[in-house]
């Protein structure tokens, strides 16, 4: 008998949720209220959740005041990367005293673990992961190799 009462109580819990949420849904349907009740769903493409400021998403390469890349191709990020997904090719930079700049800077986002070590390692603050765009998706695997062009335009 006690079990039976508990079972009915359980029905009560689900029913409470049902009627409460249904009440707000109906209010909302007739534009009487914007409250959501207890509903937590975010209707993704139309409404987007705000990302936290510290969230680590896709990388970007920063530029200096004169518009050229901050990166000096020191390979610190590639060295720190536990997924070994950063490939850099350096070349001579005519600017003094920088000397070195990346000819190729590729991050394989298919491999990236988004740990942020590369950002920590960068001595020039040239690499950041603060692009708050969670849609990192491509149709082809090869397109996930983000080169300088993609990393500077986000």
């Amino acid at each position: 008998m006690r079990l039976f009462i508990e079972a009915v109580k359980g029905l009560g819990v689900t029913m409470k949720h049902f009627f409460l949420n249904m009440f707000y849904h109906i209010l909302r349907f007739f534009h009487l209220s914007h409250k959501k009740g207890e509903t937590v769903t975010t209707q993704y493409p139309e409404e987007k959740r705000e990302t936290f400021t510290r969230v680590r998403l896709r990388h970007r390469l920063l530029s200096r005041d004169d518009g050229r890349l901050r990166c000096v191709a020191c390979y610190m990020c590639a060295t720190a990367c536990p997924a070994q997904c950063i490939y850099i090719e350096a070349e001579e930079d005519p600017r003094n005293p920088l000397e070195k700049k990346p000819k190729q800077f590729i991050i394989n986002l298919g491999r990236c673990a988004y740990c942020g070590f590369c950002v920590e390692a960068c001595p020039e603050d040239a690499l950041r992961m603060d692009v708050h765009v969670p849609e990192i998706s491509e149709y082809k695997k090869e397109d996930l190799l983000y080169d300088i062009d993609k990393l500077t335009h986000w």
């Binding site: 689900t14 949720h17 949420n21 249904m22 509903t39």
Partner: peptide, 8 residues
């Protein structure tokens, strides 16, 4: 089920 589970 959605409404019960606070979904849409």
């Amino acid at each position: 089920s959605a409404v019960i589970q606070d979904r849409i």
